[in-house]
Amino acid sequence: MSAPATVRTAITGVGWAVPGPDFDPETELAVRGMRHKDRSSRFALRAARRALGDAGLLDAPELDGAAVVVSCNFGNLGPVCDFVATIDGEGSAGTSPMRVPHLSSAAAATWVALDHGMRGPNLTLSSGASGGLDAVAWARNLIAAGRATAALVIGMEPDTPPVARLHREAGGTGWIDGAVGLVVEPVRHAADRGARIRAEIAGFGRADDERSAVEAAGGAAVRRRLGGEPNARYGRCSGALGVVQCAMAVAELEAVAGPEPRAVLAVAGAGTEEGDGSSVAALVLTPPQGRPA
């Protein structure tokens, strides 16, 4: 699968909500409004706010027509397992009505939409390790199809006891606990509002093997490949992988100065560092390519 770039799109905001020096989950996940949210929704809401803030789009009128695109594989596994444990013990009467929405994989995306009045398409993908890069490509598709003015892409995975057990049984020793957000918007729109373009989305490909995916993305000549770096830093990233890769690529494109044209190729999926049965997605990001004619 490869998409002709009918509308040039760019990343204009990045928001990290991954525990570390800049993100203390003890306080960040306990702010007002979080009480009845599950862990993945809390992470998503924090990453969303940071990414929109970074893009200068918090409270912006164009959010009304913006899409939310989430990639997450294990978000509702915790709530689902909690519910069956409660049902086994106390019957359905013991379950919490406030937690019923979190049985759906789509819960985090709808909380984010509600938090920012984002009334465009509300898409959640649970496609395995390729899902994060897929999400960026679907965001671009939704914009190109005239369905969204902009899109907030969020990759997230929560660490809950069922998630930990599943990873351990599959040979994992570490896994991410957090979310990363990206704002994707048309280059023209970003230029018109004077936003800083962090990277342009140059190509995307999806295939059963890495070489074909990279070719479809137009990335065969790109020397810098980002694959398992997020896993080395955070453990298995699963549905968040591609989004973390893009956030790291943006930082790299901004940090490395030089006369040569640069680009970063991100590759995620089976056969790369996370073999989870998914196919392979490849995405090429470049520095800003100038104002559209």
Binding site: S104, T110, L123, T124, L125, G128, D134, R206
Partner: peptide, 8 residues
Amino acid sequence: NVHTVTSA
């Protein structure tokens, strides 16, 4: 080329 869409 499978995409698992989980929009409720």
